[in-house]
């Protein structure tokens, strides 16, 4: 009984998360500015993490959980890196040289 419920619920969750991934991709494509795209990419990583977590429940393999947590870490580091890039692109940090040509 509970196995069928689990299977159905994970399927529904996968569909919802796929929709979320799709919407984030739309924002990545149309996003007018760079920070918009970075934000959408961040959300994309979180959605992908949810996707992998749902697959972990569906297959019952704990290994997927590690992938999900690694994805969350990767998303965080990528956003930090992009924030640094946005900051230095427009306003070169003192001593870091002038790479910020508008």
């Amino acid at each position: 009984m509970s196995a069928t419920v689990l299977s159905v619920v994970t399927m529904i969750a996968l569909v919802i998360l796929a929709l979320a991934l799709l919407l984030s991709v739309v924002r990545v494509i149309i996003g007018p500015s760079l920070p918009d795209r970075v934000l959408a990419l961040d959300l994309l990583t979180v959605s992908a993490m949810g996707f992998v977590g749902t697959i972990a429940i569906r297959t019952g393999r704990a290994l997927y959980l590690d992938i999900a947590i690694a994805l969350a870490l990767l998303g965080f580091l990528a956003t930090v890196g992009f924030a640094r890039y946005i900051l230095s692109r427009q306003r070169p940090l003192s001593g870091s040289g002038g790479e910020g040509h508008p």
Binding site: T10, A13, I16, L19, A20, L23, V46, S47, T54
Partner: peptide, 12 residues
């Protein structure tokens, strides 16, 4: 799981 998926969709 369902609540999490729905919140992620709403965030998107």
């Amino acid at each position: 799981l369902l609540a999490g998926a729905i919140f992620t969709l709403l965030a998107a």
